[in-house]
Design a binder for these strands. Structure first.
Lengths: 334, 334
DNA sequence: TAAGGATATCATAACGATTACCTAGTCACC
DNA sequence: GGTGACTAGGTAATCGTTATGATATCCTTA
């Protein structure tokens, strides 16, 4: 069986209390005995039993990383970038627990004893119920990706509205007037932010907002494909389309090509996210880069320090997006 | 504070032992008391403390999902499909712990007390050291994606060799003679399997294997792009290229387009994986579908039953790949 | 009716750590 | 040389469960 502190105590001829203290670098222990104990521990390959530790310390050594949903509306790139970001910060002494909120019908298993802290990559306002529960349980939480009103919660977001605004502006400045938007999952905050930014760009440049140029999608390629199909069926199809994420943009392109049309010659397309393949699409996709991995890293870091010392200091960090011009937009020479 | 079985015991006027038994549906408890206790538990919102439970049960309620690496050579789609697959099987009472093997310099923190079982999505032979450690610790393990020799370990793989063979065969039957391959990360078993299958197809059809038609890559788009560049620089470029995964195929296409050439008119391309965007690429990518999500689901299910009753019954499950013909291959009429 | 056997429950000891509180030794100082 | 302070370490309680061996009650049955 795996050695415990008692085994070490016997070998070192001290009490297990001393061993515990020595291993935790308590000042109550003489340097020489501390060293001896550390040596023995290493020799027998001692590893602390985290369950016992957790039980008495009332800590779990577990960080929960939650998504609104793992199965729906979460693209692979988004998902894995998030995990990569968090993973790179959290060290191996922590368990990283990953789940979708929609895996739960009720939240009773989410409580303080089980999670030292929670990172929520939030996409929907429906998550508020979850957030409320977590806060009520007194679990430190950091909410990423979606702005929430409660200013006592650490909140890290990307400035999607501005990003979408820039995308719209870019199209307008390229001479486009008939610009459509393909939107994301209904109910997702990001969907709304991007729509708002886009529309503001239109309004600021005195371009009428046409209802039939606003198409709903759900962030996956197929939905982009279908939405673009409908746009192209219009009597007067748009000359440019802003897609609320890259996946839908890829789907939209597909639809354009299938009708024998060209991107950007016949239709210009802008995406959002700068996911891995946007550079390698043909033509490469003009898009808005959203720093998911950065946001996740930041979030994890903040959470860790929040766990260490629970100071509430009203944090809302907004990380700017970056417009990336590539080949999918045509400049209209009017 | 959260209620414990002792609190419930007081309320129910029984000993905490009885409560524990009642909650675990022990036959030693009368139905009527069991019901009463269950009611009270529900009323006070009792949730078991898993740390205490784990401590005495010597179980962790944690499943480890390990990758060869999370940062390198693991594409987003692969990564997230795996997690999705596992996630859909493992229920919420378990913790799902996700890490890359290369996050560890030594494995002492990986032991029985911490993991009830481990799922390894293995890509490299270098993982054997890890597997050995896990086995030695007596932790139930299921290895996915890469065949291992030790037949006492449950092993679920996709038949990559055959898949690659079919890809090669398809190209040959379409009339191609000058066929190149862009390979995956060196040292990954999948790289080798796909190469072997591909080469076998060539040999079986009496097509000479040319050294300069074998290019190394590392499974990412950029490497596919670069490798294709080199192929096109050859005096006699290939008319078809088999890319060891879809990401590289996308990169390769990009390279073709940049030179003003067309896929499939000038160069035919086949990928591997059937990742999300292969259908939406332009042209859509002919590829070999590898059922990652199925493999992961299967793996998780097997692990769960292995944990329940540790019977070693020599399991090697090979899930077939599926060839998917789309638009990126041209039929040569010779 | 007393012994024997179920049946239902209880008291207590684990599990492996941390920690509040105590104790033995040493030294300094009056 | 006795008192107090300090040092280094030990004793025992504790965290919330489950497991083990009593124990009390009731029902059979000879």
């Amino acid at each position: 069986m795996a050695p415990t502190i008692k085994d070490i105590a016997k070998l070192a001829n001290v009490s297990h209390t001393t061993v515990s203290r020595a291993l935790n670098n308590s000042p109550l222990i003489k340097e020489v005995t501390r060293k001896k104990i550390a040596e023995i521990a290493a020799q027998v390959g001692y590893v602390p039993n985290y369950n016992a530790k957790s039980l008495v310390m009332q800590r779990s050594y577990t960080i929960g990383l939650f998504f609104t949903s793992i199965a729906n509306g979460t693209t692979s790139g988004f998902f894995s970038d998030t995990i990569r970001g968090v993973n790179s910060v959290i060290d191996v002494e922590y368990n990283l627990f990953i789940r979708g909120i929609d895996d739960y019908t009720e939240y009773s298993s989410i409580h303080r004893k089980r999670f030292d802290g929670i990172i929520l990559m939030s996409q929907s306002e429906a998550d508020n119920k979850f957030i409320y529960h977590v806060v009520q349980q007194g679990i430190p939480i950091v909410v990423l990706n979606r702005q929430i009103d409660d200013r006592s919660i650490i909140n890290i977001i990307s400035n999607d509205r501005e990003g979408a605004y820039n995308a719209g502006k870019h199209l307008i400045e390229a001479g486009h007037q008939d610009i459509a938007i393909i939107e994301g999952v209904e109910g997702f905050k990001s969907t709304q932010e991007r729509r708002d930014g886009f529309i503001k760009a239109l309004i600021d440049h005195n371009i009428p907002v046409r209802n039939d140029y606003m198409r709903s999608g759900n962030y996956d390629m197929q939905s982009g494909y279908e939405a673009m199909g409908k746009l192209l069926d219009l009597e007067k199809p748009p000359t440019a389309v802003f897609c609320s994420n890259d996946d839908m943009a890829i789907g939209a392109m597909k639809s354009v090509f299938e009708r024998g049309l060209q991107v950007p010659n016949d239709v210009s397309i802008v995406g959002f996210d700068d996911s891995g393949f946007s550079l390698f699409a043909n033509p490469s996709l003009t898009t808005v880069k959203r720093p998911i991995e950065k946001i996740s890293e930041q979030g994890a870091r903040r959470l860790l320090s929040l766990i260490k010392e629970p100071i509430e200091n009203d944090v809302l960090i907004s990380i700017d997006t970056e417009f990336i011009a590539r080949e999918s937009v045509r400049k209209l020479s009017k």
